[in-house]
Simulated assay, not measured.
Amino acid sequence: MTTSDTAADYSTLKLDVPEGVQTVSITRDFAATPDKVFRAHVDPELFVKWCGPDSITNTIREWDARTGGRWSYIASDDRGEYGFFGSFHELRENERIVQTFTYEGFPDGVNLEILTLTDLGDGRTRLTSTSIFDSVESRDGMVASGMEHGIVEGYNKLDTLLNEA
């Protein structure tokens, strides 16, 4: 994992964690149309299948995927349960998701996530996501927790899910 101003390339994932800045940016291309990628992010039955590392099982507590709606889920593994919650600030179908994200273990740390889907043509989509943390220290703590691992495995599962659809 790099924490420099240079983006790291993990297979088809680009993760940028600039030194001294409270953001993480992700870029990932998918062999699926924007509507399919969008749906996988807002449909709770699909979301639980791909979000997070392979060792995680997700359970939805609340899911109201609309502008102004809320979401909440539990991620479980052999070490315990981890709760997450937030609100959908804006859903622009097949184009953009703006939401807050909070880990219950650190309730003072609210992130703003901006996800944009770009139609690359030929049935492909570029996902670009920027997470803005409340501080550089919060961002660094999330990165140190294994965030990269979960993103890579999650998006690999999303690839599989999208290819099955």
Rank of each mutant, 00 (worst) to 15 (best):
L15F: 08
V48N: 03
V48I: 13
D122Y: 12
F106N: 08
V110I: 10
G86Y: 04
D119Q: 08
G80K: 02
G123A: 06
A8R: 05
T2I: 13
A144V: 09
P107Y: 01
V110D: 00
R66P: 06
D77R: 07
P18Y: 09
R70G: 13
G20N: 09
F38K: 01
R61P: 06
S87N: 12
L115F: 06
G86H: 00
R96A: 06
E62V: 07
C51D: 06
N94I: 01
Y82N: 01
R79W: 12
A65I: 01
G86T: 00
L127R: 04
S131I: 12
P53G: 11
R70Y: 14
K157V: 14
R66Y: 04
R79D: 11
L112V: 08
G109E: 12
F30Y: 01
G141D: 12
S87A: 12
G150K: 00
E90K: 14
E164P: 00
S135V: 09
G141R: 10
E45P: 01
T125H: 00
I74W: 03
G83R: 05
F101K: 08
T23L: 11
T100W: 11
N94A: 11
G121Y: 13
R96W: 14
N163K: 11
C51T: 09
G68M: 10
K14I: 05
P34H: 05
G80Q: 06
A7T: 14
L158A: 05
Y82C: 05
T102Y: 02
E95L: 12
T130M: 01
E148D: 04
I26S: 05
G154N: 08
T125N: 10
H89L: 13
A40T: 04
I26Y: 00
D54E: 15
G52S: 01
G80T: 06
D64I: 06
T67Y: 06
T3Q: 14
F84N: 00
V17G: 08
V21W: 07
S55A: 15
I26F: 05
T67G: 09
D16Q: 07
I26K: 03
G52V: 08
V42K: 02
V42E: 01
D159M: 07
E81H: 06
D5F: 15
I56N: 04
